[in-house]
């Protein structure tokens, strides 16, 4: 006979098990907290570095203005990243949406509301295009959306050049009622509430997370994968359109660089906020918003500190590595599929 009887339910072993469980739960809690800690760290460090200037009334409005676009887009992107998708066309499609709206406004024939609505349809169409490339042409979404991004950038450049030599403007003062802190706050709250509701309390969000967790399981459990993937992209498109509208009236015009870079900013926000890039159940809208806030406050605060542009980029990049390095869940696969 080998050794003596060991029991799993002995006092000592029960204690050890409790300890291990506690440790595991703690670890998970810490992982979840890191994006928040990163946010708090950024805010506190910058408040000190700017001598409190970060929270001057004036600058708070700036932070709202500067983070507005990214937060809206991040809320929309939650639905796409939750199911494991991505979309690199958002920058170019935002620019195109702005172009369409400006052209309609300048034509003086279309009511403003109709122009805005048509504008929103542009990114919806482009995002759905990305979805269709992935779903029906079976092109990996990374490749498909990168390709569509190039096409859209080309189209934007072409239409801008042909019709306006690179720049189209509208009167800033005529549209002040849209580029207005109160309106923006209202829209922001509305988008976040709508996003949160759809994400947490309807099939659109719930099924997106299941699809992100395991597409085969979702399919074989009767989830209409194509339908929910497309829904996610539609919502992203709507959000990009809304963001484009405000971006347009803020700049009172559109140029070929309008919206450019949004797609990469978005990835930074998603990763910094601790939103799993592969999607799945750990996807939470709040993480996407948190990421957008962190990125925007970081940019704003570092500008306030009057740091050299290269150092700003360096700090941003390193913080990105640290936060993502600490919080990213490696068990769920590669960062970019």
């Amino acid at each position: 006979m080998d050794g003596k009887q060991v029991s799993r339910t002995s006092e000592e072993n029960v204690q050890i098990q409790k300890q291990l469980d506690k440790k595991a739960r703690q670890k998970e809690r810490i992982m979840n907290l890191i994006p928040y800690a990163g946010f708090v760290f950024v805010v506190v460090a910058l408040t000190i570095a700017t001598g409190g200037n970060l929270f001057s009334a004036n600058n708070l409005a700036n932070i709202l203005n500067q983070s507005f676009v990214m937060i809206i887009v991040a809320v929309g992107a939650s639905f796409v990243y939750a199911h494991g998708g991505m979309d690199f066309t958002v920058g170019a499609s935002m620019g195109l949406a702005e172009f369409v709206i400006v052209t309609m406004i300048l034509s003086d024939k279309v009511p403003l509301a109709a122009a805005l609505l048509t504008g929103v349809l542009v990114p919806v169409a482009s995002s759905v295009g990305v979805a269709c490339c992935a779903l029906y042409l079976k092109i990996p979404v990374f490749v498909g959306s990168l390709g569509l991004r190039m096409v859209l950038m080309g189209v934007l450049n072409m239409v801008m050049t042909n019709s306006a030599n690179g720049q189209l403007n509208i009167s800033y003062n005529d549209y002040r009622f849209i580029d207005n802190v109160a309106v923006k706050l209202l829209v922001l709250v509305a988008v976040i509430v709508a996003g949160y509701y759809l994400f947490e309390y309807t099939g659109i969000g719930k099924k997106a997370k299941i699809i992100g967790g395991n597409r085969t399981v979702a399919r074989e459990s009767g989830v209409n994968v194509s339908k929910y993937v497309i829904w996610g992209y539609v919502f992203l498109g709507v959000c990009v359109g809304i963001a484009g509208i405000f971006s347009l009236f803020r700049a009172a015009g559109v140029s070929n660089t309008s919206g450019s870079g949004t797609e990469f900013n978005l990835m930074t926000c998603i990763a910094l906020g601790g939103f799993p890039l592969k999607g799945g159940q750990r996807s939470r809208i709040i993480n996407a918003i948190l990421g957008a806030m962190t990125v925007c406050i970081l940019s704003n605060g570092l500008l306030l500190c009057n740091l050299d542009a290269n150092i700003i980029n360096g700090i941003k990049g390193l913080l990105f590595i640290v936060i993502v390095g600490l919080s990213y869940d490696r068990s769920s696969g590669k960062l970019v599929s």
């Binding site: 700017t50 203005n65 500067q66 676009v69 700049a251 015009g253 309008s258 919206g259 500008l303």
Partner: peptide
């Protein structure tokens, strides 16, 4: 050279009580 960046930079400069701005705005009044 993007309008969005330039506007953000100008706003932030104003918030940090700058006395004057040498801007790099493309053709937009906003």
């Amino acid at each position: 050279n993007t309008t969005e960046n330039t506007i953000a930079a100008i706003e932030t400069a104003v918030a940090s009580d700058t006395d004057g701005i040498i801007g790099a705005c493309v053709k937009t009044a906003a």
